[in-house]
Design a protein around this nucleic acid. Structure first.
Length: 150
DNA sequence: GCCAACGTTGGC
DNA sequence: GCCAACGTTGGC
């Protein structure tokens, strides 16, 4: 099983929102590197759910990949914010996966704590300077270390 | 709201 | 293929 971290702005879609709906299509990703991560995801992969652009940025929950990558339907929808007129159904440019709620953490593992563990976490994509990827890989060791902070 | 980082676009 | 302009992300 592989592990990943997905960012979401809680004002847009929080871990509580995911808990309510159970399963949510994870689309609207319009960055090639993040898209490639989505495409590499396999059914059952573990996801750290991260709240960004908020008062307390950090890991707030765990989710699972409920469906492997498929063409993101929003790219074909002219009314969607994520519409991409350059992408066609014959050669879809963007992918989505389905994400299923697993559990909330007992508390938020805030970004500051992750930074404080930088030496244990090693080369962690989230802590790299200037990282803005909304989907990024997490090693098994990093997964373990982060959850041990809970 | 500011600003650094950095991906994308498009002219050449 | 270069690179300036521009837009977006996300912490603060």
């Amino acid at each position: 099983m592989q592990h990943w971290l997905v960012k979401s702005e809680p004002d847009e879609f929080s871990i509580d929102a995911l808990q309510r709906v159970g399963v949510e299509p994870w689309g609207g990703v319009r960055n090639y590197q993040a898209r490639n991560h989505l495409r590499a995801m396999k059914l059952g992969d573990g996801l750290l759910f991260y709240h960004s652009s908020c008062a307390q940025p950090g890991v707030v929950g765990i989710a699972k990949v409920a469906r492997a990558a498929y063409p993101d339907p929003t790219q074909f929808d002219p009314r969607s914010d994520y519409h991409d007129p350059r992408s066609g159904p014959d050669d879809p440019r963007w992918s989505a996966v389905d994400v299923a709620f697993a559990r909330k953490l007992q508390r938020t593992i805030v970004l500051d704590e992750l930074r404080a563990q930088a030496s244990r976490l090693g080369d962690f994509a989230l802590l790299r300077r200037g990282n803005r990827l909304s989907v990024l890989p997490v090693t098994a060791a990093q997964w373990k270390t982060i959850l041990s902070l809970e």
